[in-house]
Simulated scan of single mutants.
Amino acid sequence: MIRHFSRAAMALALGLTALAAQSQTYPSKPIRLVIPFAPGGSTDANARIIQDKLSTLWGQPVIIDTKPGANTIIGTDLVAKSAGDGYTLLLTSTAYVVNPSMYQKLPYDPVSDFIPVTMVSVSPFALVTPVASPIKSIKDVLALERAKSASLSFGVSDSSAALSGHLFNMMGKTNMQSVSYKGAGPLMTDLAGGHVPLGIAAVSSVQTQVRAGRVRILGVGSAKPSPLFPDAPTIAADIPGYEATSWFGLFAPKGTPKDVVTKIQRDVATVMKDPDIQKRFFDIGAEVGGQSSDDFAARVRTDMDLWAKVAKSAGIKPE
């Protein structure tokens, strides 16, 4: 009995030693950062802002791998089925917490198949329109919809933006239809070309086309105006209580050692303290993250519950 216990204790000690050694040597090879969107959108921008600094800090390349499709499900599922060793990570948006309310069956479990690592940034959603559009304000949208003189639709790059639009419908008593795109980049291209009347995307996704004079912000989804576009009104000014923000965060596959998760989180937090990084996020209308894994996990759970309630209240039936 004692001999067996000693062997078990020794095996446990060896296992713990191996895990500690893994975290101390991490990373020892390139890290693959999977983006479940097309290039050119907010998630891609978040990845590219932190890519070089993390590569320098880790002494290993951080390779961005875009895997768009099916409202982020394709890329997310790829990471869910990857080894839990810290060398394949997911950088995704609020779509992560919205998809469980939009789809009856996902190929992965958002609760048990991933470990939330940290939030990278947060940015309010914005309702935008082509600059040549006759729609000039949120009041115009409400008036057109309520008069039923136009059938409006809004383009979205992911399910979180779609649900933010449905929240607009619910609170504003409108009936606009959503049009899905594979990423914010393609959506903004179509908006700039006038191929879709409205779009909902994070401020960080719309800012390039807004500054180029091709797209107009009708309203932002934060409680206060965006520091990037202080003159843009809030949607809540016309629809009291409306608030919709998009965060971007890092997730690791289940089984990733806790010490490795903690190291990634702390290193990302270190990068976020860099004034140059903070300015680059500010320039795209986002606030930096870096929260602990536990704090981010709590935000994920809270948001998942919130959007489930919104979906149910809006009568959205999962596909």
Rank of each mutant, 00 (worst) to 15 (best):
M1S: 14
R7F: 12
G15H: 15
L16N: 08
A18M: 13
A20K: 11
S23I: 02
Y26S: 07
S28V: 11
V34P: 04
P36R: 03
F37L: 08
D44R: 03
D44F: 01
A47K: 03
I50A: 01
Q51W: 08
Q51P: 05
T66K: 09
K67G: 04
K67C: 07
P68S: 07
T72V: 08
T76M: 02
V79P: 04
K81W: 12
A83M: 11
T92Q: 03
T94M: 08
Y103E: 11
Q104V: 11
K105Y: 10
S112L: 15
D113C: 12
F114Y: 09
I115D: 00
P116M: 01
V117G: 08
A126F: 08
V128E: 05
P130Q: 02
S133L: 10
P134I: 06
K136L: 06
S137Q: 06
S137K: 06
S137Y: 05
D140F: 12
V141K: 03
E145Y: 14
A147K: 15
K148H: 13
S149C: 10
A150K: 05
A150G: 00
S151I: 04
A161D: 01
F168H: 04
M170R: 15
T174S: 02
V179K: 14
G183W: 00
P186H: 11
G194W: 05
H195N: 15
G199I: 01
S204M: 14
Q207I: 08
T208C: 07
Q209N: 15
V210E: 09
V210T: 09
R211M: 08
G213H: 03
R214G: 03
R214M: 03
L218Q: 04
A223S: 14
K224F: 10
S226I: 01
P227R: 06
F229V: 10
P233Y: 03
I235P: 13
P240N: 14
P240A: 10
E243W: 06
E243I: 08
A244T: 11
T256L: 11
V260T: 08
R266T: 13
T270C: 03
K279P: 05
F281T: 01
G285K: 05
E287A: 06
V288S: 00
G289C: 11
G289P: 11
Q291R: 05
F296G: 01
V300G: 07
V300K: 07
R301M: 09
M304F: 05
K317N: 10
